[in-house]
Design a binder for these strands. Sequence first.
DNA 1: GATGAATGAGCATTCATTCAT
DNA 2: AATGAATGAATGCTCATTCAT
Lengths: 208, 208, 208, 208
Amino acid sequence: MARARKVSAPLAADPPPRPRRGAPADTRLRLLQAAAEVFNRVGYEGTDSNRLAREAGYSAGTFYKHFADKRTVFLAVYEEWVAREWEEIGRVLSAAGAARQRAEQIVGVFLAHHARWRGVRSSLRALVATDTVVADFYRAQRRVQLDRMVTLSAGRRHKASREADVLLLYTLERAADALADGEATALGLRPAALRLCLVELVIARIRT
Amino acid sequence: MARARKVSAPLAADPPPRPRRGAPADTRLRLLQAAAEVFNRVGYEGTDSNRLAREAGYSAGTFYKHFADKRTVFLAVYEEWVAREWEEIGRVLSAAGAARQRAEQIVGVFLAHHARWRGVRSSLRALVATDTVVADFYRAQRRVQLDRMVTLSAGRRHKASREADVLLLYTLERAADALADGEATALGLRPAALRLCLVELVIARIRT
Amino acid sequence: MARARKVSAPLAADPPPRPRRGAPADTRLRLLQAAAEVFNRVGYEGTDSNRLAREAGYSAGTFYKHFADKRTVFLAVYEEWVAREWEEIGRVLSAAGAARQRAEQIVGVFLAHHARWRGVRSSLRALVATDTVVADFYRAQRRVQLDRMVTLSAGRRHKASREADVLLLYTLERAADALADGEATALGLRPAALRLCLVELVIARIRT
Amino acid sequence: MARARKVSAPLAADPPPRPRRGAPADTRLRLLQAAAEVFNRVGYEGTDSNRLAREAGYSAGTFYKHFADKRTVFLAVYEEWVAREWEEIGRVLSAAGAARQRAEQIVGVFLAHHARWRGVRSSLRALVATDTVVADFYRAQRRVQLDRMVTLSAGRRHKASREADVLLLYTLERAADALADGEATALGLRPAALRLCLVELVIARIRT
DNA sequence: GATGAATGAGCATTCATTCAT
DNA sequence: AATGAATGAATGCTCATTCAT
């Protein structure tokens, strides 16, 4: 019945779900948010640009007024995602508190973020492996992240080697993905125990 | 004249790259190997099934005689890949030797394998996130790996927690990917230093 | 009713209008012929590649197995067209006969051909003006035509200047287009009179 | 800093290229002129109506306030173009002078005009072949041109046949296009020689 | 009068899959 | 067992046109 509406009852106009005219920045934002959700749910390759637009309440053409192409939104989504994560981590790190408590918070932020954006992350890694534009963008982002991380630890006596820092980052990331995937529990791991391991690693790093 | 060859002189046969008729198992294997290479080079989504067949020296139809669909070959490729990796690691672990030396070998195997199959791995992770069939297959494989890992450490006094084991595995994996990607060097890390860090982690684990 | 067929009566299979499997050359030819007709009727820009395929009795994908893209078929159509025209003109010129009679035949061939392929011709000229690939192809073809024309007049005492030759060619072409368009009659011209003028021009050239 | 201008400093207004509000006739004229340039450069099909407006310094909507659609502007552009050409030719013809001198001027005007508006002309011919509205408009214009041409030759003793007149017109047009295209030189013709041939044809016609 | 955000049908092209040979 | 021509739904993207402001 509902399906037939559009064809058989042109008189009963459906209410336009979105403002027909709005500030471009708002539109862009809505498109970006919708894209983030869709990419996260079905992956980069699982989506088509028309759907991205429709999901945000717009038509196909509107999408291309705001983003050059599908890859471009994807990168924008990723950029946004990274920014948010480090914003939160920065907040935690700059706050006072016992080492353990702060470590727990850091791990918490990581896990939550990766659980939330698991689909985007895995699409990202697949694209990095095959698309040079994405690869370049990704590396630039990572470098910024790492520099920030180093900055954060500026006050410590013994600077950890850049390598050790990165390795910790990688461990956190990969574990977060595994928890998000359900891979961890599928392997019979207890999430709480895994989490504890991570916290210990972070504490060791903070204390150095 | 030469230019016309391909069109006008089918008699001057190009070397038939593959036997036109062979044992099914051979055909399957050749298709599998070609698929592994292609997936690794251009990713799952970047591959088209006709090309998979052609690259192995067969036609489109032959491919579908041996594999139900594209996903199926992909899983077969993955399975094969995991098997090879653990075969090698098993060899290393069962060999005698000083802890450091064995740790270096293990890290070496990991890094080499991940560098070699980087494209397949990133495609895999993207699929795991969106395709339930792939996800299930992947988890089953992982469980087998982990069990094997636990078996390998059977002789040690203090059994490491399953969680710590997995975490080490994750760290190795992620670091191997980063080295393979070029991400590590792009971040200004010294591969040798990174490698050393990994070796230390493995030693700590072996010694326990 | 008919519209619903495909959905509601899969049992009543429509007869496949074309052989499901045929020699590639045949398929290519059918596609080429259909394309020629469609381009001629609705112009290059008025056609979409799917229609081109469907009109030949094939599906969208088949088209792209035989031609790299829309432009490529168009050039193939043009090439074919030129070849046919000069084939006929060559036949006329190499035949014996009084100058007037041969001139009438030449004009006849020109007018008939241009009337027949008027749409292709005008699309061609529009593309030549904007698409460099088409422009290059076109010029190469024209040069061949002109050389052939010069060859044909090899036996004459006073060689006409290349410029005069071309000018005659142009006059014939443009007049043929005008007749084909209906432009000539719309201007109140008598086709027979126009034709006579052309014949006189050709005679003057042949006799030189 | 400079880079950021466009984004962050809307205050530093770029010079407003056009008055935001003006006499409708002015707006229309500006749109028309911009359209002429764009059509000429990239052809009718290569132009998008938004660009037409923007190039004139207006927005998409404004365009449609002044012209019913894309085709309508195109016809207006064409009309304008024809008017200009005949204005100039009229000036030449009504001036005194030796036959040769006047013929040279006429040919000059033709060649210059066609070189200048080559893109518009070829788009026009493509549209005439497929779009009845354009075809009708075109024929009406041509009739006016021809009548004017006949008028111009009113004083001569022997009226040339209408057909011969048109044929001369066609030769001039086609040759002018070929020179504008670069087709003529690509065929190895010497522009000066071609031009001379045309002048002779015009002289013959003027003298009659 | 002018704007420009939004529309949505349309288009060129690709690719996993089938099936007659 | 192998072929490869054919399919056709799907995809990324464009553009003439509208209309609320």
